[in-house]
Design a binder for these strands. Structure first.
Length: 584
RNA sequence: GGUCCCGUAGUGCAGCCAGGAGUGCAUGCCGCCCUGUCAAGGCGGAGGUCGCGGGUUCAAAUCCCGUCGGGACCGCCA
């Protein structure tokens, strides 16, 4: 090693020792005659005192982010010059030798944790961005994955790698495609998840499989979405939901303990999907605050209010303090609701003296006026915000409003971790064309008491599917899979997949399932979101080494790039496959 | 596919609504001074295609249209 000590580890007990350090110049405070150089590397920062006579030659140009080697003696700082804000603040290193290992060009932005830098510049010089906070996000992510591997290993899971160059997997997103030079006109798809492979591994008798796997989905970006992202993919044979819950909780409990030293409750709460929707208007409810939905369908049954009359569902969220919101604020929420495709957000405000005001008030009958506050559970000073329409739609709107309003009124406590399982997720949902589509994926088993009749009326059939949700974020998703051929056939039938199409797309899996597939099920926690949550950041980009911008570009490498005519020819992109066999 | 915000010196921003010459602010950079600072300080200096294209106007960073790039959201995506 070039150095004998790590800069951030030096303490008063090292006083008198001669040490050799290597790192970067974080700051140079030059007083003429003597200069103070903050030497920074992964372990921390230490102050190096450099006399003028050493600042000759290359060392004389010492600037921020020069990479240097320093030989010097550790000594206690002169009385009164200690810096209690630094772990190394009691001492300093009196340099006898300064060597520039490599110089730094002037920086495109300050390498300083508290400087605000634009997203694009940070990504363009991501390596400098990483220096700013000592790659904190990546180090937290590492501690999480290290714990995950330990827990998986302790429980007998086998780490197996599955192909990235493969064929389409049934997750429902758009595929990334890769041309195949050896078979012009044919393309690999990058896997949206290792779903099919892990099921094949169960047929193969692995019994317990896991992988920290990259997944690829060609959909639009969000702050918590990248086109290539990472899942802890796991699958177990001979299990039911309880076994998967136990493992899932063990993983999250261990990670939260190791990374944050926080004990999560055991077991996690469980809420059936329909209860989540009824109470929170979301399939990933944030349980850190109340503001639960109130159903008013029966209260408004037979109402004359035009926007409520005849609607299958009327509900409300009661917001404390909203009774004093200004007209401008209320108009803003109306606009917010319209932005989500609703007609608006009707409201009634309860004044301090219990009297009501609000746009829909005039339309209410006397009985509705007098009973509303009690029915909705609203107190003086509260605002009651309504949505009406198809049950799911109206609840979605109220759920989104619940989150936004909680943020608005500061009702979301910091430092809380509200984990829960959302259970009994629906099996199918309307596909918009009068048919049905699988909510999770088409290998998810129906609830055990619906195996015989799930295809008679696919609406509201619960699946053996479950999510882990924390603070309003979906952190994991999984299910017990179908292992009987006839059930699988009937599921394909419901979602309108003909036997020919099924064979064409998943024939290899169906074939494998002819050979004694074990009952199995699994889970897939999202590593990026998990790490972001642990790091206390809103954006998963902070826990990804080289993230992409929202148009899928990487400003650092310049990817993606156009290809040359020759590359295009070699890749066989324009070739027509002999005998077109692809289903449309 | 849609909505919204942003684009001005290397970086972060003000100026734009209400048009009138880019001495704008902070930081960084360059030079000089300075022996106890710690996001050091003082003095001086350099640094700009106001993203790009078009339009309106006597005159555009500013108003209008288009386009590109970044960000957030809806749709999409578990």
């Amino acid at each position: 090693m070039i150095r004998t000590h790590e800069a951030g580890t030096l303490r008063a007990e090292h006083a008198g020792q001669t040490v050799t350090l290597a790192g970067w110049v974080a700051h140079r405070r030059d007083h003429g005659g003597v200069a103070f150089v903050d030497l920074r590397e992964a372990s921390g920062v230490v102050q190096v005192v450099v006399r003028d006579e050493l600042l000759t030659g290359a060392a004389g140009d010492l600037r921020a982010e020069f990479c240097v080697k320093v030989v010097g003696e550790v000594r206690l700082r002169p009385a009164g010059n200690e810096n209690p804000d630094l772990p190394t603040g009691a001492i300093e290193v009196d340099a006898s030798e300064v060597e520039v290992l490599s110089a730094s060009a002037p920086l495109p932005f300050p390498v300083d944790a508290h400087a605000e830098v634009g997203e694009e510049a940070r990504l363009r010089w991501r390596y400098l961005d990483l220096r700013r906070d000592n790659a904190r996000g990546l180090r937290i992510r590492h501690r999480a994955t290290r714990t995950i591997r330990r827990v998986m290993d302790e429980r007998g899971f086998v780490d197996v790698e599955t192909p990235y160059l493969t064929r389409s997997t049934p997750e429902g997103a758009r595929d990334f495609l890769v041309p195949v030079r050896l078979q012009p006109g044919h393309w690999y798809a990058l896997p949206q998840s290792p779903q099919l492979f892990k099921q094949l591994l169960m047929v193969g008798g692995l019994e317990r499989y896991y992988q920290i796997a990259r997944c690829f989905r060609d959909e639009d970006f969000r702050a918590d979405r990248q086109p290539d992202f990472t899942q802890l993919d796991l699958e177990m044979s001979f299990v039911d939901e309880e076994d998967v819950y136990e493992v899932g909780e063990a993983v999250f409990r261990a990670v939260w303990k190791d990374v944050l030293d926080i004990e999560l409750p055991q077991p996690f709460r469980r809420l059936p999907f329909t209860e989540c929707m009824d109470r929170f208007g979301s399939d990933k409810p944030d349980l850190r605050f109340g503001l639960e939905l109130v159903e008013l369908s029966s209260f408004f049954a037979g109402t004359e209010v035009r926007i409520f009359a005849g609607q299958p569902y009327v509900g409300a969220v009661v917001v404390p303090g909203a009774g004093s919101w200004t007209r401008k604020q209320l108009d803003g929420w109306n606009e917010w609701a319209r932005g989500r495709g609703a007609k608006g957000l009707a409201y009634v405000l309860v004044e301090g003296d219990g009297s009501l005001r609000g746009g829909v008030l005039n339309a209410l009958s006397d009985g509705e006026r007098s009973g509303l506050a009690v029915a909705a559970g609203a107190a003086p000073g509260d605002g009651v915000f309504f949505a009406a329409g198809p049950r799911r739609e109206a609840q979605d709107l109220l759920g989104a409003f619940r989150n936004a309003a909680a943020r608005e009124i500061g009702a979301i406590p910091e430092g809380r971790w509200e984990f829960l399982w959302v259970t009994d997720m629906p099996m199918f949902e309307p596909d918009g064309d009068g048919g049905w589509t699988a909510v999770h994926h088409p290998f998810t088993a129906p609830a055990q008491d619906r195996v015989d009749d799930f295809d008679v009326d696919p609406a509201d059939v619960p699946a053996r599917a479950y999510d882990i949700v924390c603070n309003g974020m979906e952190l994991a998703s999984g299910s017990i899979r179908i292992h009987q051929a006839d059930v699988q056939r009937r599921v394909f039938d419901v979602i309108g997949l003909t036997p020919e199409e099924a064979r064409s797309k998943f024939g290899f899996l169906l074939e494998a399932f002819q050979y004694g597939p074990p009952p199995h099920g699994g889970l897939a926690p999202g590593i990026d979101r998990m790490a972001a949550l642990l790091a206390g950041t809103e954006s998963i980009r902070d826990v990804i080494a080289f993230p992409k911008t929202s148009s899928g570009g990487d400003p650092l490498t310049g990817a993606p790039t156009p290809i040359t005519a020759q590359q295009r020819k070699d890749a066989g992109i324009d070739a027509t496959p002999a005998g077109l066999t692809e289903p449309s």
